[in-house]
Amino acid sequence: MRASDLKPIVALTAMLAALPLAVRMNNYYVLLLTWILYYSTLVTAWNVIGGLAGQLDLAAASYIGLGAYTMGTLLTRLDVTPWVGIPLGGLVAAGFAALVGYPTFRFGLKEAWYALATISSVVVLQKLFLVWEGVGGPEERYLPARYGELYYLRFRGYAPYYYILLAVLVMVLLLNVKIRRSKTGYYLLAIRENEEAAEILGIDVRKYKLRALLIYAFVTGCIGGIFALISGYLHPHHFDTWTSLQVAILGIVGGAGVGSIYSLPATTFIIYSISELLRSTLGGWIPGIHLIFYGVILTVVVLLKPEGLSETYERLYGRIRAALLRRRAGGG
């Protein structure tokens, strides 16, 4: 990893770390920022499978749910701390991902089948956990309300979760940069550009796709554990197809795999804020307005700018920078 890779991460971290203070720890804004950060980590993790490997994975909610249930069940039944439960949840999610990924990553199988298999997996896990009374069931299972203890990682406010997610985001960003610079990253890029050519060159396509999937599923499973801690309970509705779709939409609109990785959190920030604004202003009159917005923006971006918005940000950034430099030159 090069020093030039680290600079933007450090800058981003510093900026994000200061944000809750900028809104003076107002609960609403901190919670809003926490959800934005939550989706940012998911989308950045999604970049590994959706961007680098070019597989349209729609199972984010499956991994989130599995991570949440693993962590939560261990915590409520055996009093196992989330510190251990969260990574274990990641492992369970990765195991499930392998189960779906192995058959669907067979060489030559259509990408669409993978997307279908993953989005269906969310619905199915929801049903299975509803039926599985021992662990799931229709009733909410509450996590112990022992706030402010490091062992239980439960807090009354949202700022602690915000910083936990920030730490995760930094790790996921580093992971992305690292994979991109590694052999795996180059192979994945080759597979994405032309799978047949990659196979002919002797790259084991299935193996590398699976590797990307497992990394992604593990991270998402971990984030799922954190999600359960924030929401405070377990319910089969943690397997929510809309979460999956939202992650993929943000990833595609942000230009996963094409441009800069920072475009993903930026897109999440912009789109989630707009959608929340729509919900809280017009949501009372036009139900689902924020969801219509997601649909419109995805369709429009895919049709008009299939490479996503990352390039647009870069151009914007370049222009602002040039303007600033010009002003400085003019003023000095």
């Binding site: 349209l56 993929a248 595609i252 969801l291 219509i292 995805l298 369709t299 895919v302 049709l303």
Partner: peptide, 9 residues
């Protein structure tokens, strides 16, 4: 896939 997902939403 993305375009038709957009349509779906």
């Amino acid at each position: 896939i993305a375009a038709t997902i957009g349509l779906m939403v």
